[in-house]
Design a protein around this nucleic acid. Structure first.
Lengths: 137, 137
DNA sequence: GTTTATGCAAATTCTTTGCAATACT
DNA sequence: AGTATTGCAAAGAATTTGCATAAAC
């Protein structure tokens, strides 16, 4: 099981309210969240700056990852780990709905190998599919 | 052939220096450009604001498209069109080098069909591959 | 001559930094 | 007790808006 508490501990991070609440948010909503989303939801419970710093800390510890988005602002989603290897997943597939604007991780889908031109070395891949999600149909 | 002049005319846009120069830039460098890149290259020849507005206009006319980027700021690239159908290409594959930071369109590569979960309707897809490019190896 | 684009100033928004007070271990 | 995190103020970027001038058609 992974509670916010366990997640912080296993990443050697101090237990603070802000961190617990933000992790909980990511676990509850299963969509990618922007700084502004968190600010709204947490409704002045924490300072804007603290949220920025929390996100940065989580990024550095590979707890969350940036989700690509064409609308400018950065979005973040919880990282899934290969339970067995404890290794970070470097292939992200996300779906962004053009109606509700929600971005969800499509974890079940894995990317086929992409044949790159000679001399190019792949390290990471992200696929963003845009369209209409199941709820908005 | 597609000169900046023709491109503007065919998109019903007024011919101005700024627009001509920016299109030329996109044609010359074949990488995705950020607002800041243009500002640097054009070296005070045009106002910052004019560049913002030019990019916005080009976006609206589907002359350029946003390129996904994990570094926050927006990047843009020239749109490739299917010559025959004159239709906009809705599948973008880009490669971003972690060393030189350049993002190039991999036009030769086409994405395999991605099986989406039920209820999801695809409209557009962008793949961003990150790694080391041919020049930086 | 009418419409659209540009440049400048200023307003907004987004993000980062410094530092003292507070909370965590 | 010692170290890391928070909140506040303020600085610094990035982007947008308003308006008079200039350029395009």
């Amino acid at each position: 099981m992974s509670t916010p508490l366990h997640i912080l501990k296993s990443h050697c991070l101090r237990i603070t309210d802000c961190r617990l609440v933000i992790i909980q948010e990511f676990l509850d909503k299963k969509v990618a969240l922007a700084h502004a989303d968190l600010e709204d939801t947490l409704n002045n419970k924490f300072d804007r700056v603290t949220i920025y710093r929390t996100l940065k800390t989580f990024l550095e510890k590979d707890l969350i990852h940036k989700v690509l988005d064409d609308s400018g602002g950065a979005k973040y989603a919880f990282c899934t780990h290969h339970e067995a290897t404890h290794q970070h997943n470097h292939e992200h597939v996300h779906f962004k709905c053009e109606k509700c604007e929600e971005t969800t991780c499509l974890e079940s889908i894995s990317l086929p190998p992409i044949p790159l031109p000679k001399g190019f070395e792949k390290k990471e891949m992200s696929l963003l599919v845009q369209g209409i999600c199941e709820k908005c149909h």
